[in-house]
Amino acid sequence: MSEPLLSVRNLKKHFAVSGGVFAREVDRVHAVDGVSFDIGKGETLGLVGESGCGKSTTGRCILRLIEPSSGEVWFQGADVTRLGPDAMRALRRDMQIIFQDPYASLNPRLTVGAIVGEALQIHGLAKSRKALEERVLELLETVGLQADHMGRFPHEFSGGQRQRIGIARALAVDPKLVICDEPVSALDVSIQAQVINLLEDLQEKFGLTYLFIAHDLSVVEHISTRIAVMYLGRVVEIAGSRDLYDTPLHPYSEALLSAVPIPDPTVKRKRIMLQGDVPNPIRPPSGCHFHTRCPIAKPDCSQRSPELVEKRPGHWVACHYRG
């Protein structure tokens, strides 16, 4: 891995569950429960896991769209979690996000030109009206939209085109890091491929670094340099993308990968069936969070919580018995 652009250290986010007459805090959802990873300059780190594992919350905590409960997020020599509002706003020029739902993340009352140009105005990046318009045009072309789309409203576009608008908006401020939160999950496969190709082209052209959050393992494998697998608020494995697919070490990663359907009827694989559902994150299991569903769990797995350890070069696993 190259020099890290972003370092996340022991990030935690607990949401309060209130109840009772006075809406006291009665419990906590441990959405993100001590996550650490690095992202190198120009690489794509894939963050995968099932619904509720905390992958989106992790992405949002990095940008402080959700305030983390504790932990550090180092970006360009500063701990993002300690920045004041002004410094934070300046920093958002360098960190942008693309959301899953291209329908919900665009203001329906603004034209495409206004949506893409908004960030340029906020950060004072356009000297004049004309310069602003030129920059917006350039951005639309970069993402494969046309000049005459500028005056139109989001509802006039298809899902794939709306996602392109979202990408143009993120690129407007020339960011270094883009957090892609399930950017293709809402799209049909043929359109999904268009957007994935676009993201790859843009990365090459502008030297972008991506944190790519998704639940679709085939998409993540395709686009990522390295992958982190999350389960119930914790990272259980981090490895190079091919390495993870060829030799997953954590039993959860192994089961997750074996569950991905392969679009080829001649391929017959052995599937590892996980029993039951993901436990409630309000009361996650003691010790290793995965021990209740783990096929190789031993008695002490419910006692001791495994640390993320580099078991092979560049391959980190949080398991007492694997690797």
């Binding site: 999904q192 085939s218 494998e221």
Partner: peptide, 14 residues
């Protein structure tokens, strides 16, 4: 449709 899907089972697909 078939070609637009990323394949995890192919090493070269990376």
């Amino acid at each position: 449709l078939i070609r637009s899907i990323p394949r995890v089972d192919r090493a070269a697909a990376q």
